[in-house]
Design a protein around this nucleic acid. Sequence first.
DNA 1: AAGTTATCCAACCGCTATATT
DNA 2: TAATATAGCGGTTGGATAACT
Length: 317
Amino acid sequence: MEDLRRGPWTVEEDFTLINYIAHHGEGRWNSLSRCAGLKRTGKSCRLRWLNYLRPDVRRGNITLEEQLLILELHSRWGNRWSKIAQHLPGRTDNEIKNYWRTRVQKHAKQLKCDVNSKQFKDTMRYLWMPRLVERIQSQSQSQATGTPASAATTYNVVINTHQNADIINLDMGSAQISSVPQPHDVTNIIRGGGGGSLENSSAAVSSDSFGTPVSDMTTDCYNNYVVPLNHDLNQDYYPPAAAAANNNNINYHHHHQHLSSYNYDDDQSNNLTSPSGYFNQAGGMDFVDHQNSQWNMDGGDVSDNIWNVDDMWFLQP
DNA sequence: AAGTTATCCAACCGCTATATT
DNA sequence: TAATATAGCGGTTGGATAACT
């Protein structure tokens, strides 16, 4: 009885766990494991459920908006993964942590600087984050020009011009970010006043549809970010509802592109929203092989090219 | 084609905080 | 109140596989 299994979960174990939780609910993981007949620690069951099997978990393709949010929130909170994850609906702390380690830290390493160094933080703040904003905007514009959306996730990007600063709200339905360094100023500064490409920000002005005043939270000496995050994270974060709720906003779809080394399978273009999407199917318990399935969740763009080598001049001595 | 290296990420670990007995 | 159980967090590891030589 006490020969506990470890390592990757099998299809059968997944099924057992899902089936048990479907009938008895989650919690009390040690006894759950025992009662379900799983030779796993409760801890392992909990982790498997929360990070992989539960129906609302989103995996794969971290969108540009999510990347921006992660960078922003990490700059404020550091490695508080679960706190950060709370603001990315459906994402787990583990996934965000992995994203950070594999994507962000990798680039710090390439630049031979510490992720915690001011140099690197400045690069993120004044270069990569504005660049992400640019890309999000350009996506939004291509959408506006009639490019059809396929397998799209709709987000709302609200670009507010406040008296003092440009504020960009990334409204991911419920998760929103009102922040970002004053984009064109920053871009100009960095590029020596040249051509920040965000001058058109105000062309997309809308009122703050969230009614959320800029908070008085300040960050460190840069004093550029203002991110009220008092929204209800349990709201439906799916795009259509979000779009409908914010009718002044730019409303855009972005397309799934294979720009990265990810190999999420486009053919998985059914509407499953998680590996446990079959919960929603007839009977609720159809089984699929999660261990070997890969999911394109939302057509997001995971491309790495915010980390453009061209940008690295910023760090050159 | 085979061998090697790099990358990704699921799952583990140790630890702390909170809840229950 | 103390002891025990459970939940949750962040750091780390190792297997699978992609990329490279």
